[in-house]
Simulated scan of single mutants.
Amino acid sequence: MSGTPLVSRDERILGMVFAADPDLEDKGYALIARQLSAAAKTGRRATSPVSTQECG
């Protein structure tokens, strides 16, 4: 579920789901669009690759 858009009933993007609770099937965790805005703007301006460090 990580990275799934959080969408309103009227189809507006509200944020991004980043985790689900394995013990509660109807509970997830999300960041709202306002919380993601600065990172999205930085990403749009990025012009060179960055290290993934330990991810691969």
Rank of each mutant, 00 (worst) to 15 (best):
M1P: 01
M1Y: 06
M1V: 02
M1F: 08
S2I: 04
S2M: 00
S2T: 08
S2G: 02
G3V: 01
T4Y: 06
P5M: 08
P5H: 08
L6S: 03
V7A: 01
V7F: 00
V7G: 00
R9W: 07
R9L: 11
D10E: 08
E11P: 01
E11W: 04
E11C: 02
E11F: 07
R12P: 00
I13W: 02
L14C: 12
L14M: 13
G15W: 01
M16Y: 01
V17E: 06
V17K: 02
F18V: 12
F18E: 04
A19L: 04
A19I: 00
A19P: 04
A20H: 04
A20L: 10
A20K: 10
A20C: 09
D21V: 04
D21S: 10
D21L: 07
D21N: 10
D21P: 01
P22E: 07
P22C: 05
P22L: 09
L24F: 12
L24K: 14
L24W: 09
E25M: 11
E25A: 13
E25L: 10
E25Q: 09
E25Y: 06
E25G: 05
E25D: 15
D26W: 09
D26E: 10
G28T: 11
G28D: 03
G28C: 08
Y29W: 09
Y29N: 11
Y29G: 07
Y29C: 05
Y29Q: 07
Y29E: 06
A30S: 13
A30R: 01
L31G: 02
L31D: 11
I32G: 08
I32R: 13
I32K: 15
I32S: 07
A33I: 06
A33S: 12
R34C: 08
Q35M: 15
Q35L: 14
Q35Y: 08
Q35C: 10
L36D: 09
L36F: 14
L36E: 12
S37M: 15
S37V: 10
A38K: 12
A38E: 15
A38I: 13
A39T: 06
A39E: 08
A39Y: 06
A40L: 15
A40R: 13
K41D: 14
K41R: 12
K41T: 10
T42K: 11
T42V: 14
T42C: 05
T42N: 12
G43T: 07
R44A: 13
R44N: 14
R44T: 06
R45T: 15
R45V: 09
R45M: 15
A46M: 12
A46P: 00
A46Y: 03
A46V: 10
T47F: 06
T47D: 14
T47H: 03
S48L: 05
S48G: 11
S48V: 07
P49M: 01
P49N: 05
P49F: 05
V50A: 02
V50F: 05
V50P: 00
S51Q: 01
S51I: 02
S51G: 01
S51C: 03
T52E: 07
T52D: 10
T52W: 08
T52S: 13
Q53D: 13
Q53E: 11
E54T: 09
C55F: 11
C55E: 05
C55P: 02
G56K: 11
